[in-house]
């Protein structure tokens, strides 16, 4: 019975495309599915991810499907599609915005969540450790770089900002850190 399955579309909605239009990405509505984006996509030629299909799904309003799919995170934001789209669709920026929406719905990859925690705790996405401190000394540099690592007040500023934009609430770090994992999708 596994062969009996359908992905029939029974509802087309403006909800998702309206969100993008409100954010200023109007050209998306003019996408004619020419395939230039997928045609040059370095990710698409080694995975099932199809940039063009993603644009169509957004046009049709298949919101849950788009935001929950981990393929949304296969794009390496190389901007090749953005540069080549003949309709001027800012493809990569659309994908980044969709990722924002996905995170708001709670869809995030676990390693990315870990990065958010480090960002909140240290002000760096990739913080230093003892080993690399030694490496800095080997290269005649200060053991800590003159960043938030060396200036705790600056690290506090970052936390103030992340609280102010509610990044902590969004990603579940700082005061909002929970035990359970984010939905990986």
């Amino acid at each position: 019975m596994e062969i009996i399955k359908t992905n029939k579309i029974t509802k087309i909605s403006d909800d998702l495309s309206n969100l993008l239009r409100d954010a200023g990405y109007l050209e998306l509505s003019a996408c004619i599915q020419c395939g230039t984006c997928s045609g040059g996509c370095p990710s698409g030629r080694r995975t099932a991810y199809r940039t063009r299909s993603l644009m169509k799904k957004v046009q049709l309003g298949l919101k849950e499907e788009v935001l929950s799919d981990k393929e949304l995170w296969f794009c390496s934001t190389c901007y090749t599609c953005y540069e080549r789209c003949p309709r001027g669709v800012p493809v990569t920026d659309v994908i980044i915005y969709l990722r924002n929406l996905a995170v708001q719905e709670g869809y995030m990859q676990a390693p990315h969540l870990a990065l958010c925690k480090m960002f909140y705790d240290t002000g760096h996405g990739v913080p230093i450790n003892d080993n690399f401190s030694q490496l800095r000394k080997h290269h005649k540099l200060s053991d800590l770089p003159p960043t938030t690592h060396q200036f705790p007040k600056a690290a506090k500023e970052i936390q103030t900002l992340l609280k102010s934009t509610e990044f902590d609430k969004l990603t579940g770090v700082g005061d909002y850190e929970k035990k359970e994992d984010k939905k990986g999708g």
């Binding site: 980044i96 924002n100 995170v103 969004l170």
Partner: peptide, 8 residues
């Protein structure tokens, strides 16, 4: 690649 994708 990461933080802009989480919250612009």
């Amino acid at each position: 690649g990461v933080f802009r994708g989480f919250d612009i």
